[in-house]
């Protein structure tokens, strides 16, 4: 029983925190974008790209969570406590780093929306800045993935 609880908790942490962070980040960038579009509706396309960027962390978390679900759903019977704890550990990096980096990325993307408003020809640079923040979510995703990959039940 306890094993299953830990495993479920691992999935919950991976999906919940990264999802929260992405929602927050996309929300920040989305508000800034909406402000620009009220002035100039033609900038929808460029602002959309910036708004979508902080959304990836939620997807990384979801991918990890889904993979974990597949893995323990394939095993009949209860999950051993040790395996459960491993699932929990694997979920933590992408959960926590995903959340924090998505929020930070949302802030950078919102500032990037300012570039779109004032100097639309330089919008690509705003996208690159926001992309830099993503690095750390990617690193966490890779570690979460390899931790997950090492679990055998």
């Amino acid at each position: 029983m306890l094993g299953s609880f830990y495993a479920y908790l691992g999935v919950a942490i991976a999906v919940l925190f990264s999802g929260y962070g992405s929602a927050y980040g996309v929300g920040l960038a989305g508000r800034a974008s909406a402000g620009v579009v009220t002035e100039d509706p033609k900038k929808f396309g460029q602002t959309l790209i910036l708004t979508a960027l902080p959304g990836t962390q939620g997807i990384y978390g979801f991918v990890i969570g889904m993979l974990m679900v597949f893995k323990f759903a394939a095993v009949p019977g209860p999950i051993p406590v040790e395996a459960g704890l491993r699932f929990l550990g694997a979920g933590i990096p992408i959960g926590i780093v995903g959340m924090l980096s998505a929020i930070a990325q949302g802030k950078v993307a919102a500032a990037g929306v300012g570039i779109v408003a004032k100097r639309p020809e330089e919008a690509a640079k705003g996208i690159v800045y926001a992309g830099l923040v993503e690095t750390y979510a990617i690193l966490a995703f890779i570690i979460s993935f390899f931790l997950y990959n090492a679990i055998n039940i």
Binding site: I49, T56, V128, G131, L132, T135
Partner: peptide
């Protein structure tokens, strides 16, 4: 596809630039 194209573009350019 949309998200992946975006990610691929952003990160591939970053690898060139940095």
């Amino acid at each position: 596809m949309g998200l992946n194209v975006l990610g691929a573009y952003v990160h591939s350019s970053r690898l060139q630039y940095l």
